[in-house]
Amino acid sequence: MAVDPVSGGMLPCGTDPQELAEHLAAGEPTDHERACPHCRAAAAETAPLLAARDRLAGERVTAPPRLLDDVMAAVRADPRSRRAYRLPGEEAGTTRVRRRVAAALLRTAAERVPGVRHVRVRDLREEADGMAVEVAAALDAGAPIPETARALREAVRRAGREGLGWEVAVVDIEVADVRGGPAG
């Protein structure tokens, strides 16, 4: 009869019914499972489920039209989208840069540092003594972490100063990942 999921009992031929079910679900029964009458009987029980599954999986599902608008309304209202930073300057009028512009500028500078593979700007804060920048970095395997972090910090400070006129007071770095190697 039906495969008993609790007892963990084997089929009379010694086949684990759970493994058989997994092979059938993947469409890859073994030669034994194809030929053995016990396995074939168990497979016959599973056949309607697999047919129904394939039908369900083949149906095209489309998101409701409002989903995109609702999601993007929330995303555009988020500070990471809206935030703009005022640049220092004495002349009349103000200059503001969007968070994404400042982040991209700092990130690009950081990613030019040898040994740095990928950088995310996690936070940009205006503090009393200047900007505080928080980044997470993935480094190449083998890159010396203290030296690389020092160079990364200096690259961010320089990009902030030269690209944005910022005094970058603090660059906090989290080495979040080490990947591949200089070649990979």
Binding site: L68, R100, A103
Partner: peptide, 29 residues
């Protein structure tokens, strides 16, 4: 993704357009 991490909602919108059907399908199933 990299641009959206910087804070670019337009980049994220493209990602939503690409993946919303699958996200919705998973939830529906």
């Amino acid at each position: 993704v990299t641009r959206a991490q910087d804070g670019d909602p337009d980049a994220f919108e493209v990602l939503v357009r690409r993946h919303q059907d699958t996200v919705y399908r998973i939830a529906l199933r």
